[in-house]
Design a protein around this nucleic acid. Structure first.
Length: 636
RNA sequence: GCCGGAUUAGCUCAGCUGGUAGAGCAACUGAUUUGUAAUCAGUAGGUCGGCGGUUCGAAUCCGUCAUCCGGCACCA
């Protein structure tokens, strides 16, 4: 007998070898019917798994959070089965559950069409209706390889061949479809339900390597209930509505055109946001002891060879030829900053030296990577390099983390994750140097007291880094800030200072940015706020709109007063009804509308309507300006 | 860069199997003087992404290039 402890704390005795399904049945017929899988001592398993030791057991139903993982994984299998039934010349590869759904990668000579997707989805419904049992089988590895080879499933065979020879593999069978899988799975295809939808077709490289064959990936979404599916589709539509490319056009902020692919034409309103952002950062940096510099756009290739960029990133650099020399548009600012550092003799007394630049860089990004403001070929970073001694790293890192979090807070981002990215497989510098750099950064991040997670192998080629990841209003993550410890570049570019001992020493360089790319950050802000920016960032903060022409004179006076108070204001005295004006300026995301009718003109008041609010507030003009001034002013 | 899809008026889109283009909004003009998310009427606007081909005839079929969109790969 084994003792099974249930989630409510009660324990029951069962014969050893009892299955999850039998336990569910013993609890109740309803639960047995709803059961999808079982959690044994915290580990999710098939319902059919037998238990021969004392254990804590939970029966998993559709209501369970973890049921989604099962449903999505089974949806992937059902899709693969549907594809094999409809297009038998197709080879299956892998198909995992992912956030919000699943995908499966197929190999087939002919491309799938959107119509094929409809057919596949229909067939998946048929498979669910069949309610075939899903059963687990344990095979010998070599037998499994032979089985899939013989079935013409060469990718599957390759995967299994990669498993150690003495290991057994588990296969799952549903109807005529057999797939290699670790499991767990639902007990039958009917339990999958029908809250799924195939979403899109995409290409994907076999084993994620661009040197390999391109497979066809079909993405789907799957949920426990129809309602959840509908809610998800609604969320997608919402995300589309806040797309910064759409809003950028609608709000007349910027555009990009064929003659300058990946480069931004900023319109007056967009450039206002851009200037507000950079002016804000400038004030923050100045307070934090940074000095601003500016460096050349075109620099001879010899500098990039010395820095190591030419070797690693040559294909991603724009170059120009002049006077028989090859120049490169700078892809980053650090080598130029070192050149400024190298002017004159630096003493330990000059350190830490914090050199900032709104550095405009150009990178030849692969065409498929371009995406609105989020991934461009010409962009400006709020970049800075701190030249310091090894002992100053901790203090400077602490100060930087505090600064970064303060800035994010000013933009309303309070959910910020920190990741520690350590040495990548391909890198510059000796391991001994990396040991020191990683140790120094670890000490520094520990000193900040911030929680952080590891991001192994993702460091820059010259040093480890901290990454600051913002979570936006709809839960998406954006990596913005970075802090990188670099022992390599000062060496390569021969930066030195004279220490207390009168000897030459290498400074350490801390590469750091808070917003990252200004262009991208503006894109993130637009999407985070759906274009409804905080008042201090709005290109036009107030529209003064008249109800009839009787209010025109007063409206002009109001606009002058508001403008004189330093707010960005526009006047609307067109021949339109106030309802039309409210709609027009709401759609344009103007945060404040001052309506001026006969009453207001007579009493010297304004009727204030805030974007998104149905109410209005009537205030004397002076009081209105006094009250709104603070909101309209950038944070200190 | 790779796979798939798309490109028609300023924007969003329609145009069936080839017979020389259409709507809504925006714009412009006029009327309307209006109290919180669309007042009415009229006018104008297009080498159908570029080039080449098939055809009596191409927005429509074929090829090619470019750009965009979705993924993949990349991201100093």
């Amino acid at each position: 007998m084994v003792a099974i402890t249930l989630p409510d704390g009660s324990a029951r005795q069962f014969e050893a070898g009892v299955s999850g399904a039998q336990i569910a049945e013993a609890i109740g017929a309803g639960l047995a019917k709803a059961a999808l899988a079982v959690r044994v001592d915290g580990v999710m398993k098939d319902l059919a798994v037998t238990i021969s030791h004392d254990a804590r057991v939970e029966i998993i139903t559709r209501r369970d959070e973890d049921a989604l993982e099962l449903i999505r994984h089974d949806a992937a299998h059902a899709m693969a089965q549907a594809v094999k039934e409809l297009y038998s010349d197709t080879q299956v590869t892998i198909g995992p559950a992912i956030e919000n759904g699943f995908y499966y990668d197929f190999s087939r000579d002919e491309p799938f069409t959107p119509e094929d997707l409809e057919r596949i989805e229909e067939r998946m419904h048929v498979i669910v209706d069949r309610d075939d049992p899903i059963t687990r089988e344990v095979w010998d590895r070599d037998e499994a390889v032979a089985f899939f080879e013989q079935a013409g499933e060469h990718y599957k065979a390759e995967i299994i061949a990669g498993i150690p020879a003495d290991e057994q593999v588990s296969l799952y069978r549903q109807g005529d479809f057999v797939d290699l899988c670790r499991g767990p799975h639902l007990p039958s295809t009917g339990k999958l339900g029908k809250a799924f939808k195939l979403m899109k077709l995409a290409g994907a490289y076999w084993r994620g390597d661009s040197r390999n064959e391109m497979l066809q990936r079909i993405y789907g979404t799957a949920w426990a209930k129809k309602k959840q599916l509908d809610a998800y589709l609604h969320r997608l539509a919402e995300a589309e509505r806040r797309d910064h490319r759409r809003l950028g056009r609608a709000l007349d902020l910027f555009h990009i055109q064929e003659e300058a692919v990946g480069m931004v034409f900023w319109h007056p309103k967009g450039w206002t946001i851009y200037r507000l952002l950079t002016d804000y950062v400038r004030r923050k940096l100045s307070k934090a002891g940074y000095e601003e510099v500016n460096t050349p756009q075109l620099v001879d290739r010899s500098l990039w060879e010395a820095s190591g960029h030419w070797e690693k990133f040559r294909e991603h650099m724009f170059t120009a030829e002049s006077d028989e020399r090859i120049l490169a548009l700078k892809p980053m600012n650090c080598p130029c900053h070192v050149q400024i550092f190298r002017q004159g003799v630096k003493s330990y007394r000059d350190l830490p030296l914090r050199m900032a630049e709104f550095g405009t860089c150009h990178r030849y990004e692969p065409s498929g990577a371009l995406h609105g403001l989020m991934r461009v070929r010409g962009f400006t970073q709020d970049d800075a390099h701190i030249f310091c001694t090894e002992r100053q790293i901790t203090e400077e890192s602490k100060a930087f983390c505090a600064l970064a979090l303060e800035v994010y807070g000013d933009f309303g981002f309070t959910d910020v994750a920190v990741k520690f990215a350590d040495r990548p497989p391909v890198r510059a510098g000796e391991d001994e140097v990396w040991d020191r750099a990683e140790a120094a950064l670890t000490t520094a991040v520990e000193a900040t007291g911030l929680d952080y997670t590891a991001n192994p192998g993702e460091g820059a080629f010259y040093g480890p880094k901290l990454e600051f990841v913002l979570r936006d209003a709809i839960g998406r993550e954006w990596q913005c800030g970075t802090l990188q410890v670099d022992f390599v570049l000062p060496e390569r570019l021969d930066a030195a200072y004279v220490g207390e001992d009168g000897e030459r020493h290498r400074p350490v360089m801390l590469h750091r940015a808070v917003l990252g790319s200004i262009e991208r950050f503006i894109g993130i802000l637009i999407e985070n706020h759906s274009g409804h920016l905080p008042i201090w960032l709005a290109p036009v903060q107030v529209v003064v709109a008249t109800i009839t022409h009787d209010g025109d004179d007063f409206a002009r006076q109001v606009a002058r007063t508001v403008g004189a108070a330093g707010m960005r204001v526009a006047l609307d005295i067109s021949n339109e009804k106030i309802g039309f004006k409210v709609r027009l300026h709401s759609v344009a995301k103007i945060p404040l509308l001052f309506a001026i009718g006969k009453r207001e003109a007579a009493e010297g008041t304004v009727a204030i309507r805030r974007l998104g609010s149905k109410d209005q507030e009537i205030l004397a003009l002076d009081e209105a300006v006094a009250r709104l001034e603070k909101e309209a002013t950038p944070p200190a």
